[in-house]
Structures are given as C-alpha cells and as structure tokens.
Design a protein around this nucleic acid. Structure first.
Lengths: 207, 207
DNA sequence: CGTATGCTCAAACGATCGTTTGATTCCTCG
DNA sequence: CGAGGAATCAAACGATCGTTTGAGCATACG
C-alpha cells in the first residue's frame, strides 16, 4: 500500500479524473478508458480498486458530499434555535459550504456532477442521496419552518424546493451568467452566493 | 408517403418514443434499439428518416420548442408595453405555455428532456438553443427591465437566471415535491405554476 | 532467502453501440 | 398491368463499451 508517496495514490487520481469527466460528459458519456488515461493509470485499476464503474460513481459522491454536508450541518448547528438568526443566515449556512468546496480546484466540477445527478432521474442514485443525506435537507427545512411560522408546511416545502432549483442551477454554472475574464473566480462565486441568498430570501419570506 | 393514415406516421412515432426515452435515460443512455422497439419501427428507420441520432435529437427539440416559444412570444406580445402589466403577468406568459405543453400526454416529458439539455454542457446543443430561441429570453428580459427599472442590468440578469433555474427544476419534476395520488395531474401543474410565479415574483421584485 | 501480498499491466472477453447495406414490400401513377 | 420511387426489413459492419484474466512487478515479513 503506497500510503504516503510523493504523487497522489491511484485511488485519488481515479476519483479526481472521474469527477472532471463525469462533469463534462456525464456518467454514461465518460468511458473508463478516457478516465483511466486521464488519470494516468491502467484500465483495470478502476475495477480493482472500486469493483465497478457504478461503485466508482458512488464513491465520487460520497467523498464530496460527506464533507459538504458535514460543513452544512456544522454551520446550521451554530444558528439553530437562535432567536436572532435570520432566513439569510440559514441560507448562508447552506450555500457557503458549497462555495468553499468550489474554491479548491476540482471542487467546482463536483457541483456540475451533482446537477447531473439531479437531471438523471435514476432511482438508484436518488435513493442513495436520500438515504445518506436526506437528514440534512430535513434539518434545514425545520429551521426554515421556525423562522417562517406563517407558512403552511406544504407551502414551505414548495419554496424550499424552488430554492434548491435556483441553487443547483446557479452553482453548477448552467445559466447565461458567465464569469467575466476580469473577475477572479472566487469573487464570481461570492457574487453568485450573494445574489442567490438575496433572491432566495425574498422568495421564502414572501407573504 | 403515408400522409394521413389511421395510426401515427413513422416519423412521429419515432419522435414520441425518443422524447420519452431521452427523458428517462438521457441522450446517450437511450439506444436506437430501445427507441425503435418502443416506437414499433425498424432499427434503420431513424437513420433513414433523420439521417443520424444527433439530428433526431435536434428534431425532438425543434418540434416542441417551436410551439412552446411561439406561445410564449404570443402571450408576451399581449402585455408588452402595457402600463398595467405586472411582473406576475410576464412570468405567467413565460410559464403558462410550458404548462399547456405538459397537458397533452408526452409534453411533460419534454420538460425533463429540456432539463437534461441544461445539465449537459454540450456546446453544440447550447449553441443550437441560443441561436434558435435566444431572442425569446432577450424579449422577456427586456420586459422585466421595463417593469423593474430600479434594477441594474447586471442585477436583472442574475435574477432572471435564478428564475430560470427554479423554473427548470420545478417543471421537470426534479425535487421533493411529488404529485399526490389524489391530486389530478393538471391541478398539480397549476399549483406548481402558482407557487413558482409567487416565488419568482418576490425574488425579482426584491429591492 | 523464499514467499506471500498488494498492485499494475497488456490482452482479451462478450455485449452493445450507431450506422450501412441490399433485398423486399408497399403504394402511386402512367 | 407494369414501372418506379418511397418505405421497411433482417442482417451485418466496425467501433467501443465495462469487465475479467493471468502474468509480471514490487514491497514486506517469516
């Protein structure tokens, strides 16, 4: 086991290349041959280390979502139940970790992978996401419910759902808004978050 | 040429099956063999009538988007420049045609196909969409600009982009909100539109 | 030293992909 | 009726897919 040699271990290199290629070409569109070539490893390495392509896909998700949702929960715990907390604070707790993820290199690619996972209506993947990270959404929804007591449960579900849509859309760089060449990447991300929080807060707080 | 026989002509049956399978399995995930089997036509029929799979994909888009954006433009013309028009009216002009599309059978599937097209960052497809239907988005944005004069051009772009995200998310049935079995399809769609318009209007009008 | 053990490698497996071919059927029109 | 173009069909094309195999290499431990 090459525990701590100079270059990245094979598993990590595969995960990195997989994330980038899944973001660009989708799960079916990216082949193991492209993937292993990009990672500079042998074709058989994927099946050796992960068992199959599907398990590799799961691992790509698990690696990022564990840290993403971990940070989200930590940020939420700081303000949960706080009588001074605002809707904007809760939104920031949800969005800021995604921002931080985008800062380190390939992190921004993962948001695109996540957006693809939403677009694919694959039941296996949705079940995986729901089982492993559904409690995060429930916790955030509960906090929104506390801050927006005038909304019925159903009304709140609708609005949180729409916020999720706008967030996924914006963070994965779908839309018209492209970063201008004279705006640094991190500044663009922060602008995105600021606009997103303002927009979402207005939609949530609407009477 | 079977101009008007009892069953649907081959071309239409292929387009229908393609729309359904692209929605479920994506463009790469749906094979021509699944597709032609579902349509009840011969495997070679796709290449005979459309030339290639890529051209079939384009035709799936063109058929629906021509009518969708035609109705959007017609609805917008009715209120463009009207001093009594509201942000909600413009949003309705954008959303209602998508609703109507969803009413006739396979129409709702197309919104999922459209959502996939957004998720795929395929440049060819994005260019096709931009060249053929970009003027619709520009027209709507211009109308929003008239009704929201306090917003800078950049601020407006951001908000319209976020509205698009929420719309795509909601209309393609991504999210948590699933239609309950005791709610008719059309009623669910209208609820979706009502929630969407209220949410988006609040986000747009936010100071 | 010998031998396990973890890992990499080139090569091949069968399956499935989009596309093409050439024969056959269907329908129309002279 | 018979010619001719449009449409359909079964079959095959080469390419590429995910996965498996078995030999080869490295490092660690008795």
């Amino acid at each position: 086991m090459p525990s701590s040699s100079a270059p990245l271990p094979t598993k990590e290199r595969i995960l990195g290349a997989a994330e980038a290629l899944f973001a660009r070409h989708g799960f079916e569109g990216a082949s193991l041959r492209q993937l292993t070539t990009a990672a500079g490893v042998n074709l058989a390495a994927v099946n050796y280390h992960f068992g199959s392509k599907d398990r590799l896909i799961e691992e790509v998700f698990r690696r990022r979502l564990d840290q993403l949702n971990g940070r989200r929960m930590a940020a939420l715990q700081k303000i949960a139940g706080d009588p001074d907390a605002t809707v904007e604070d809760v939104l920031a707790a949800f969005i800021a970790p995604a921002l931080e993820l985008s800062h380190d290199g390939s992190g921004s690619l993962f948001m695109r992978v996540l957006a693809r996972a939403f677009a694919e209506h694959d039941d296996t993947l949705r079940k995986f996401l729901s089982e492993n990270y559904g409690h995060v959404m429930r916790q955030f929804t509960a906090e929104f419910a506390r801050l927006l007591p005038h909304l019925s449960k159903e009304e709140l579900y609708w609005r949180v759902d729409l916020v999720t849509g706008a967030l996924t859309h914006a963070m994965s760089g779908f839309g018209m808004i492209q970063r201008k060449s004279d705006v640094p990447e991190h500044q663009h991300r922060e602008q995105t978050a600021a606009h997103l929080i303002r927009f979402a807060a207005a939609g949530l707080k609407s009477p």
